[in-house]
Design a protein around this nucleic acid. Sequence first.
DNA 1: CGTCCACATTACGTAAACGTCATCGGCATG
DNA 2: CATGCCGATGACGTTTACGTAATGTGGACG
Lengths: 133, 133
Amino acid sequence: MTEDLMTIREMCEAYDVTPRTLRFYEAKELLFPIREGQKRLFTKRDRARLKLILRGKRFGFSLEEIRQLLDLYHVGDQQLTQMCRTYEIATERLADMESRRDELTQAIDDLKEQLRWGEKVIASMKQEKKAAE
Amino acid sequence: MTEDLMTIREMCEAYDVTPRTLRFYEAKELLFPIREGQKRLFTKRDRARLKLILRGKRFGFSLEEIRQLLDLYHVGDQQLTQMCRTYEIATERLADMESRRDELTQAIDDLKEQLRWGEKVIASMKQEKKAAE
DNA sequence: CGTCCACATTACGTAAACGTCATCGGCATG
DNA sequence: CATGCCGATGACGTTTACGTAATGTGGACG
């Protein structure tokens, strides 16, 4: 079933994307499926990356930004200086995401207040309607 | 200074956008500046809406989605049924945003863990370097 | 009065992120 | 062997969200 390797069709169904999208991501070096003859075979690593890609998209990151973020997850055997730089970037990203979350929390609170106001308006409208009968 | 009405240039400086962007938002019915002759004059309401637009964009909402969200804030004197419908949509949006925030929190935690791992790697690399000297 | 501005409109251009279509290569199956 | 079907590759199309001229206009100012 969930073998280590998946065909493009299986990937599409599993993650609700089109073949075109997966090929596009490969062209953009976001995924690196291996080849069996011509056919692409997606690994566990590709699936992990795809999940992160889709998540990133939901937050409005561009594919290029996502690519940079993904690199943080595959680092491997880099130079020390390179590693530190990567660490720096990641730290910035983290701050970025946290402030985003704070802002989102603010937005949620705003909307909640708006909803409470809406409830009151609806209640008063029903009241009027009743009185008019 | 901060009179009720602002020119396009003032808006641009205040919110760090281009004139083109503001005209574009007007064309898309996201803003409704009044006209003095030919010139646009942006009201307090436009500024409130613009803030929400820019915020929405930061979360990856499309302008069309943002337009729908904005409508929730201007409701005014609608019919009761219409009002209830609006309330419903807003409630859905709220749930949407909350799940988004949860996901964001998850992403933040993931990244934090990744950073801790990175710290360890860097530390061990420094160790090795030291030992090699 | 000429000449800058600031702003307007119209129109074409562009980058990102795919969609769509045409064509082609294997292979399995009746 | 013909007929599908799945997948690959290219090439062109599309939508979103503006950027970028080109051109026009109504005041302000020396």
